[in-house]
C-alpha cells in the first residue's frame, strides 16, 4: 500500500488506511508536538486527536496532494492551541521576547562548530521554550519540518500575506536582532 492508496482506504472508512499513515508519521508528529508542548503526554494526546480528526475530515482531502504537510499543520496548530489553553506557558512581554530571541540567535550563531554538543542543544531547547507557543511553532515549522512559506500558507483558509506574517514573525525578528548586533 502507498500513501495515496492509504488515503483512499481512509476515505472509505477503512481503518487500515489510517494505520498506514499513523505508522508512517506518528514519530515525526509527536516530535513536532513535543517541541511545542515540551510534554510527551500532551504531545501524544495532540497527535492522537489529530489522527482521529484526520479520519473524520479526510473526505475533503485531495489524495493527489501529499498528506504530510496537511497533517503536520494540524499538529502544529493543535499544539499551539493546547499550550494557549493549558496555562502552562509563562506570558512574556515584548521586552522579554527581545532578550529571549537575542539569546536564541546567539545560541544558533555560536553553534557552528559544536552543534553536536548536548549542552548547546539544551541551551537552544531552553531558549525555545521561553518563546510564546506561536513563536515556537513558527521555529518548529521552519526549521524542524522544513516547510516553505508557500506550504505553510497552502490550505490554511486565510490570506497568504497573513499566513506569511504569522509564520515568519519569529524569524524576521531574529534577523533584525542579528542585523542590529552586527551594526552595533
Amino acid at each position: 500500500m502507498d500513501e495515496r492508496q492509504a488515503i483512499q482506504r481512509l476515505k472509505n472508512g477503512d481503518i487500515s488506511g489510517l494505520e498506514f499513515l499513523v505508522v508512517r508519521y506518528q514519530v515525526k508528529a509527536v516530535r513536532t508536538a513535543w517541541l511545542i508542548t515540551r510534554d510527551l503526554g500532551l504531545a501524544e494526546d495532540v497527535v492522537q486527536d489529530c489522527f482521529i480528526h484526520a479520519f473524520r475530515a479526510v473526505r475533503g482531502f485531495d489524495e493527489t496532494r501529499p498528506f504530510e504537510p496537511w497533517f503536520m499543520r494540524s499538529v502544529v496548530n493543535a499544539s499551539v492551541k493546547m499550550m494557549q489553553r493549558s496555562a502552562k506557558q509563562v506570558e512574556v512581554e515584548d521586552e522579554a521576547d527581545e532578550v529571549i530571541l537575542a539569546e536564541l540567535a546567539r545560541r544558533v550563531e555560536s553553534v557552528e562548530a559544536q552543534m553536536e554538543s548536548i549542552e548547546v542543544q539544551n541551551q537552544i531547547w531552553d531558549a525555545l521554550w521561553r518563546l510564546s507557543p506561536r513563536q515556537r511553532a513558527v521555529v518548529v515549522q521552519k526549521y524542524f519540518l522544513e516547510m516553505s512559506e508557500k506550504e505553510m500558507a497552502e490550505e490554511s483558509g486565510a490570506a497568504v500575506g497573513t499566513i506569511k506574517w504569522l509564520l515568519n514573525a519569529a524569524r524576521e525578528r531574529l534577523r533584525r536582532l542579528l542585523a542590529e548586533r552586527s551594526e552595533g
Partner: peptide, 28 residues
C-alpha cells in the same frame, strides 16, 4: 542564521525527547 544547523539541533533535541518506538494506534 544557519538553517541546516538549526534543523540538526532541533532534530537531535527531538530524538532525545521522543523515542522511536512511539505507538499511538491502540489509543487512536
Amino acid at each position: 542564521m544557519n538553517e541546516k544547523r538549526m534543523k540538526d539541533a532541533l532534530e537531535a533535541i527531538a530524538r532525545r525527547g521522543v523515542p522511536e518506538d512511539v505507538n499511538l494506534m491502540p489509543n487512536i
